[in-house]
Design a protein around this nucleic acid. Sequence first.
RNA 1: GGCCCCGUAGCUCAGGGGAUAGAGCGACAGCCUUCUAAGCUGUUGGUCGCAGGUUCGAAUCCUGCCGGGGUCGCCA
Length: 586
Amino acid sequence: MDIFADFENRVARAIDKLEWKAADGSALDLSRVVVEPPRDAANGDLAVNAAMVLAKQTGKPPRALAIELMGVLAADPDVAETEVAGPGFLNLRLAPAYRAAFLARVVTAGEDYGRGIVTRGEVNVEYVSANPTGPMHVGHCRGAVVGDALANLLGFAGHEVTKEYYINDAGAQVDVLARSAHLRYLEALGEDIGAIPEGLYPGDYLKPVGEALAKEYGTALKGRPESEWLATVRRTAIDMMMAMIREDLAALNVVHDVFFSERSLQDGSAGDRVRHAIDTLTTEGLMYQGRLEPPKGQLPEDWEDREQTLFRSTAFGDDVDRPLMKSDGSYTYFASDIAYHLDKFERGFANQIDIWGADHGGYVKRMQAAVRAISGGRASLDVKLCQLVKLFRAGEPVKMSKRSGSFVTLRDVVEEVGVDAVRFMMLFRKSDAPLDFDFQKVTEQSKDNPVFYVQYAHARTASVFGQARDQLPSLDLTREGLAKAELERLADEGEIGLLRRIAQWPRVVEAAADSHEPHRIAFYLHDLASDLHAHWNRGKDLPQLRFVNVDDPLSSHARLAMVRAVASVLASGLAILGVKAPDEMR
RNA sequence: GGCCCCGUAGCUCAGGGGAUAGAGCGACAGCCUUCUAAGCUGUUGGUCGCAGGUUCGAAUCCUGCCGGGGUCGCCA
């Protein structure tokens, strides 16, 4: 059902038939031969680059090759017109019958059109992984949405996807959380705790934790040394923070399959997994005792030159070798991270994707090096970095201060503008480019607001079907009925344009999935919506082009099939993005 | 200083080997006062940061510069 893939096969067969030979007698390399939509619609439906790509191999001039190829493809009954153009492009125009048959298949497939059939293997997408020390703030939105949409996209493209969240519940920050919660516990017992000391988390969201601790433990945790209550308080606090985070994510329609605890790497039933990871590297001969050069730039105050256990990450493309043990003998965060990624590999994930904030960019090389190292080169990690989101309200920057606690939470944003707007806008930019988010603009009901524009296109298709049912009640508007309409009647350039856009859907899905770039789906949907709206508007001046035309039920039927196809693609595309495809705008 | 990301129209950005580089906003000029529901159409506008290289072909790939941002044992 991918027209371009179909014709790539036909071109390959044509080349075979022509018995083109490489000048040196070796087999022809057809890997660079592609069939794609021409940039300019005037050049037809399909462009074939075979002649240019093969000119050197065959030792023949490109235009001569193109003409030979044209001879074969012109005989194909599914091809209406052929033309050799430019430096050696072979341009094809499809026969109306082929186009009609294509549309019939799309209509029949419905929202499965464009879905990858072949299984493309398992992949693990890890995203969000915010520290369990408080509610999620806006900064987390982008990674959450990008990761979630990417996972949906990969699933649609034919991968088996696991959505995973890594809980950073083992570092010093969760001890700080526990101390902060303990203070709130004392508060809940009626003590005057005064101002929250510098260095502890001041947020009110810890009050319920204090109350819960008071309720469960009474005064048992009071007046005791920290060592006696820390672990208990920490566990309760982390559990409650994670419950809150899950609710925040649910508000964004983000649901993970696996929540993986960092602490479990050391405390879990499987023993010390970090030790296991280090042992794995040691067995491979990748650990050694050595010294590191002090970092360039600003030297840390407590820098001490010492011999330590280093992981030879430079053997896998990293800039310097990395320590896995701190001076006090505990593991570095990187060591835990290696253990975690090794665990993923041992769970069967050779394809791993992590979504990180751009401030972690310096961490990418070493993590990729580690994944290659612990898997013996059998696993690979792709890291998508998400740049910052700048918040605006009617063009004015929104001020935020994390330290004073006056930051905008994820929940604030979702409640103000809705999930759909947040999700769509987070995906309407490449993830590694900064993004401006204007609270005002994303709720406007106008063409300038891409969320509205795309959703409205879907609503408009629903409206068309409503009218069709009223005005042409005799038409069979089921998918089966629409697939049987006289689809060759679709010949207007606006209609052909829409069909061409629809035909691109499978290759957009594939390209977006291969490059791990869900934003391409958002841009494609915007283009498709734009085509639909533009064609609709032509019906204002030219009533004979309208989708529903009482005087011409046969053409109406064919057009409704096309509208059905547009609606299906919009719906499945929006589903990938996690955005609703409404039947009416309110 | 090393590494990573970015540099495309006045603005915000798509395009990541293919033909004359696109969209939205802005600006300018018309149309619409009605019906297919949130206006419509057209015009304007670019040395794709700079310089080399690879290629039949480069905004796209490579190298080096310039400019902006991020980051740089034990934080997470």
